[in-house]
C-alpha cells in the first residue's frame, strides 16, 4: 500500500467529519431563529440571516442550527433574532445589524455570554418579598 499523503489524510478527515455531522445533525448545541415576517424582511432580516450564515461558514460550525420564523409581534424592533443555547432560556435580540450579529455570535453563541446591550430586555425591577 502506498504511503498516505497529507492530502489523503485531509480527505479522510473530511469524510469522517461528514459522518460526524450526519450523526450530530439532530443534536444541535444552539439554535438561531431570524424573524422573517413582512416587518422583519422590510427591516433587513435577510441580511441578518446572511450575517449569521457567514459566521457559521467562516468558522466551519455544523452543530448550530440556523432557521427562520414569522413575525414575533414587535415590528418596530426588527430585525430580530432569537438565540437558544441548549438547556437555557431563549434570548431575543432586537434592532440588529450585521455588526451586532458578529458580536452576538462570538459572545453568546460561542461564548455563552448574553450580550445584554442588544437583548430585548433583562429583568431590572426588584420585588419586595
Amino acid at each position: 500500500m502506498p504511503k498516505l499523503t497529507i492530502e489523503d489524510l485531509e480527505k479522510l478527515r473530511e469524510r469522517a467529519k461528514k459522518q460526524t455531522f450526519l450523526r450530530e445533525a439532530t443534536d444541535y448545541r444552539a439554535k438561531i431563529t431570524v424573524h422573517m415576517g413582512t416587518c422583519g424582511i422590510a427591516a433587513g432580516a435577510r441580511e441578518i440571516m446572511n450575517a449569521f450564515l457567514k459566521e457559521l461558514q467562516e468558522r466551519d460550525i455544523t452543530d448550530v442550527l440556523l432557521t427562520n420564523s414569522g413575525c414575533a409581534g414587535l415590528c418596530s424592533r426588527e430585525p430580530m433574532a432569537t438565540i437558544e443555547i441548549k438547556g437555557q432560556a431563549p434570548v431575543k435580540y432586537v434592532d440588529l445589524t450585521p455588526e451586532k450579529v458578529k458580536e452576538i455570535f462570538e459572545k453568546h453563541v460561542l461564548g455563552g455570554e448574553i450580550v445584554k446591550n442588544y437583548a430585548l430586555g433583562i429583568g431590572s425591577e426588584k420585588t419586595d418579598y
Binding site: 461528514k18 455531522f21 445533525a25 450564515l53 457559521l56 461558514q57 466551519d60 455544523t62 440556523l66 432557521t67
Partner: peptide
C-alpha cells in the same frame, strides 16, 4: 447523498 439541505456544506 442524504445530507440535509440546511447543512453548511449544502449551501
Amino acid at each position: 447523498n442524504g445530507l440535509p439541505l440546511n447543512s453548511p456544506r449544502a449551501i
